[in-house]
């Protein structure tokens, strides 16, 4: 019985686990065309508590490096693609405004 359950789990459970158990009951694109990109859920870690430094402290940046620049509520921030490429998403706030920076 245990072995039977294990086989059922392997056959049914494994693909589901790999798929992340997303709720596709509502959808606007065909769920069959949603595929695993390799890294698991949160395998690419989004940032939630970004820290900032002054330009003169940014030794890791070269002049020609690409940055995504944002000005909102009088605050200017630069998000280097060097960092964004590793995290894809930064959950941030500009004063009262909740902002998502994505790459």
């Amino acid at each position: 019985m245990t072995r039977y359950l294990l086989i059922v789990w392997l056959v049914l459970g494994m693909p589901l686990a790999a798929f992340g158990n997303w709720d596709f009951s509502r959808h606007s694109i065909p769920p069959s065309e949603i595929i695993s990109g390799g890294p698991p859920r949160d395998g690419i870690p989004a940032l939630f508590h970004p820290e900032y430094i002054a330009p003169e402290k940014a030794d890791f940046l070269d002049e020609a490096d690409q940055v995504l620049g944002v000005v909102l509520n009088g605050v200017a921030r630069a998000y280097p693609l060097r960092i964004l490429s590793w995290h894809e998403l930064v959950n941030d706030d500009f004063g009262p405004d909740p902002v998502l920076v994505s790459w």
């Binding site: 940014a58 940055v67 000005v71 630069a78 280097p80 930064v90």
Partner: peptide, 24 residues
């Protein structure tokens, strides 16, 4: 609104800018 540009240009046109730290 956002701007994709070089660090040099962004820094020159927004001297008050801060930059995301690698201390993530």
């Amino acid at each position: 609104p956002s701007t994709l540009t070089t660090w040099n240009t962004w820094r020159r046109t927004h001297p008050e800018t801060v930059v995301l730290s690698t201390n993530t």
